[in-house]
């Protein structure tokens, strides 16, 4: 759901070698349940943060059922809670969800879904299910099992977590006194942390954060965050330019 280290499927590949010859799917199922339980735990914090941001229990639950991609959900309620408009909230959520398209692209040839399964499988295409499925590159039967078991276990436990957190938080009068307003950026930094894997990723994060802060006094709430998306485009251009030059110089 988030950018957990689950996404680094390379790490998981090796740890599974021992199970490669085992016909039983039980180890995969147990792992899928473990991932679901961990995700359910932060479903709790999503439910509470969503209520603190001004959504009601139904709206919060609708997000976990229908949107079902954690970073986008946190972003949508964060931008709305900060007074950002509809367009900024939706745009931030959709931009954050773009990686799910890439996940689906790499999963499709392995899962070979048809009919209803394709539409259901699409909704379960998230960080965790993708990482688990791609960790079985040579065993398509196990990859399919890992995808469905992880997707379903995360879906169910994420939604139970959301409901519990939302109901709990709806009994609280002032979110500020409980520090829930500090929990929101803490949630984002926990999602960001595992992605800061290199010096250039840190640079990307610092430039984006500085740009957003600099724009806060001048733009409507929500828009400074969207402006940071342009940093991704600029960084891509810089990297492309650099690799073109290296190729021309014959250094690579």
């Amino acid at each position: 759901m988030n950018s957990d280290d689950m996404v680094n499927s390379d790490d998981i590949v090796n740890s599974d070698d021992a199970a490669a010859n085992d016909v039983s799917m039980r180890p995969t199922t147990v792992k899928a349940l473990g991932v679901g339980v961990a995700t359910g735990a932060y479903g709790l914090s999503f439910g509470a943060i969503s209520i603190a941001s001004g959504l009601d229990v139904w709206q919060t639950q609708a997000l976990s059922l229908l949107m079902f991609t954690g970073a986008s959900q946190f972003a949508l309620v964060g931008v709305l809670g900060a007074g950002g408009g509809l367009v900024a909230a939706v745009a931030t959520a959709v931009l954050l969800g773009a990686r799910n398209s890439l996940y689906a692209l790499s999963l499709a040839p392995r899962l070979r879904l048809h009919g209803f399964a394709k539409f259901a499988g699409a909704q379960l295409t998230i960080d965790e299910s993708t990482a688990m499925a791609l960790s079985h590159p040579d065993d398509s039967q196990r990859a399919r099992h890992a995808f469905w078991a992880t997707g379903l276990s995360v879906f169910i436990l994420w939604n139970i977590g959301t409901l519990t957190g939302a109901l709990g938080a709806s009994f609280i009068d002032d979110p500020g006194t409980l520090g829930l307003d500090a929990a929101i950026p803490a949630g984002f930094i926990a999602l960001l942390w595992p992605r800061l894997t290199s010096r250039s990723m840190w640079a990307l994060a610092l430039v984006s954060a500085s740009l957003a802060i600099a724009l806060v006094p001048f733009l409507q709430p929500g828009l400074p965050v969207l402006a940071a998306a342009l940093v991704a485009v600029a960084a891509d251009r810089i990297v492309a330019h650099r690799s073109r030059r290296e190729n021309q110089g014959g250094t690579s």
Partner: peptide
């Protein structure tokens, strides 16, 4: 591939910064 990889880092770090330091349009 590159832009989709960069987007979560840019947006999440901007969200951290804004949600930590901004109240409306004031820092």
């Amino acid at each position: 591939r590159r832009i989709t990889g960069y987007l979560p880092i840019c947006l999440l770090s901007a969200l951290v910064a804004v949600q930590t330091f901004a109240t409306g349009t004031t820092l």
